[in-house]
Design a protein around this nucleic acid. Sequence first.
DNA 1: CTGCAATTTCAGAAATTACTGAAATCACGG
DNA 2: CCGTGATTTCAGTAATTTCTGAAATTGCAG
Lengths: 191, 191
Amino acid sequence: MHLTTLQQEFVLHFGEMGSRWGINRTVGQIYALLFLSSRPLNAEQITDGLGVSRSNTSMGLKELQAWGLVRLRHMPDDRRDYFTTPEDLWEITRILIAERKKREIDPTLTKLRELEMQGPSGDHYAEARIAELREMIELMTGFYNDMEKLETERLVKMMTLGSKIAGLIDKTGSVLTLGRRKQKDTENGSA
Amino acid sequence: MHLTTLQQEFVLHFGEMGSRWGINRTVGQIYALLFLSSRPLNAEQITDGLGVSRSNTSMGLKELQAWGLVRLRHMPDDRRDYFTTPEDLWEITRILIAERKKREIDPTLTKLRELEMQGPSGDHYAEARIAELREMIELMTGFYNDMEKLETERLVKMMTLGSKIAGLIDKTGSVLTLGRRKQKDTENGSA
DNA sequence: CTGCAATTTCAGAAATTACTGAAATCACGG
DNA sequence: CCGTGATTTCAGTAATTTCTGAAATTGCAG
């Protein structure tokens, strides 16, 4: 496996970023390599493409599979395992967000609820702060659940519209018409 | 500094989650302690509340200040530094998102642009994949920039509306009126 | 079964990251 | 200035995480 300069640089960058993203260098590199590869790769190709040990590759692939970021394929007349990343970037993004939520947020939400279940502690301020935090997380994860359900097409449209989308909502929470407004501007709302 | 059981548990949880959040245990614990504290704390109070070394506290506070998650206060007739977290959870959330974007996404976006600047590499597939990734990140960070500007009130409304917001957009990207629709349903759109 | 290639596991080594205590620096009041 | 308390720095150590090579396991073909 010879890597092009482009692949090299990309792979190294993902390796370096790995620690910030909560994965280790090898995992980042494996993912990067598969991401740029037009065909599935087997563990040995990855191993010598990256210059790491075979066992390290094995562990890295296992972790990527646990994240759902890498898939197993098989080739005719070859019993080795081949790996790919999902093609669709949106699918990848959804997976990433879902997994990070699961690992970084859900455990805390559970813990906060647990603490609230324990009843009065005498520390009113702390209790209030914990409740407030739980509520915010619930609001945000609720919103996430709604967005998660949307088809990609609609999400892309939303993102493209950007802040225009917020113009649709006034501060009371009612939805306003915007653009497409008929002749009479009389029935206006706030902004 | 004696911690209540509630504080203890919360602090320990944040310490454990720290590594998943890209901070170390002590930093997580310091933040947690300040978050639950109704009054500013000085470094010594933190140190013995958590049972870590004074120097560790100092480094942790420095990191939290670098994140913008902790603020310095001063008390009359006391030359020690006191620390608090911002009160407003939305402000905290904005800071967190902005900082994570800065650390986890911006460097990659820069790198991708850099790679594209290097011109043709002969690896069409990799080039296409990199361009595609850059475009998606640009779309998402662009959307983020728009959302970032909104007042909190509007954001909350948006999140509360949840998927209803997406109902406003049809797949062509035009904005539909929804609810508030006058008597004539004739001019309808898709959903 | 047996043999062999592919893969995984795992104990220890290597690398990285976090933490401490001692010394240095800072900053203010006298 | 000097002295004192507060804070930071930093070299060394401790703890944790990552990586390796060897051994174990898997699973398939003959």
